[in-house]
Write a protein that binds this DNA or RNA. Structure first.
Ligand code: FES
Ligand code: FES
Lengths: 163, 163
DNA sequence: ACTTAACCCAGTAAGTTAGTCAACTATTAC
DNA sequence: GTAATAGTTGACTAACTTACTGGGTTAAGT
């Protein structure tokens, strides 16, 4: 098993998307600002999410990304799998061939653990997370903070053009 | 979360130890042969396991390692923790401070997942694994195969001394 | 035309993993 | 005592992955 920032970022970004893309697409620039994730790195992750048909991109002004389908139908397991994180803990990848042709001593243990985690993440959807109070609170705080930084950014731009 | 060969090897070796060290200590050389793990790498892992008081080493001929205490009291979670694998999936390590002073959007999700996996691995002991039929079968197959390779090894030694 | 923002590709610093090599110490057997 | 055994320690390394940067292209809106 290997669940790193890649998977964390992917789920975080998808949750941000679910929260903000009700009306119109959300730009990666906004997500990067709110969640403090590198824009270029987000692009890479969304390339995978798009290939997995979890999001769709719209180009040009007013464009951005929005969810493919309903938040109730997107599980955390799907997102994590889409960006290429292995939930499986085995060395053999389920082939039961660690020792030449035979399984190793602990093959079954890791298989069971993997199944366990997988089913846990499959049962949680974006909608489930979105319904939590804590998530709502954090998202709203982020919106306010992002609004401030945008104002600061615009102010800086203004000063720049005045020079 | 990050569960790699390090944790797999550690648990596999401990299980091998639980299976073979009923009467006398087991050498790392034997474990390395049976489980096809690099001897030097095993030494590093057992240094950590010893520091965590999970095994004790006996030097000299007839020496080797044996379990500290009963197999019923050693959980998989302890072994994995002893070699330094993080079961926790959060970025913050439970501090809830991904975003400067605040928690990130998905903090709770990763905390819950970590707790879930941790309690799963805490409930499984070496004795539990040892009781399984599959594990017994694999261990016996490994014993036979190791016996063969030892004979081949002795044969090679014999030929060598005759030259 | 010009701007916006998705899309695409190449590269890279830092860190981790899995492993090797070499030296040293304690214990037992002869 | 001395030789063999087996644990103990530390430094060092190739290969790989992660997280990230930069530069460029393409499609869409105004
Ligand atoms: S993990 Fe599947 S055979 Fe070892
Ligand atoms: S994972 Fe804990 S705050 Fe982000």
């Amino acid at each position: 098993m290997r669940l790193t920032s890649k998977g964390r970022y992917a789920v975080t970004a998808m949750l941000d998307l679910a929260f903000h893309s009700q009306l119109k697409p959300v730009t990666l620039i906004d997500i990067a600002a709110r969640q403090t994730i590198s824009l270029s790195y987000l692009e890479q992750l969304f390339a995978r999410l798009r290939r997995a048909n979890l999001v769709k991109g719209v180009r040009g002004p007013g464009g951005g990304y929005s969810l493919c389908g309903d938040a109730h139908n997107i599980s955390i397991a799907e997102i994590v799998a889409a960006v290429g994180e292995r939930i499986d803990s085995t060395k053999c990848g389920g082939e039961a061939n660690c020792q030449k042709t035979h399984e190793c001593l602990t093959h079954d243990l890791w298989m069971d653990l993997g199944d366990h985690v997988k089913s846990y993440l499959e049962k949680i959807t974006l909608a489930d997370l979105l319904a939590k109070n804590r998530v709502q609170e954090v998202a709203e705080r982020q919106d306010q903070h992002a609004q401030q930084t945008i104002e600061i950014h615009n102010h800086a731009d203004l000063m720049h053009t005045l020079q």
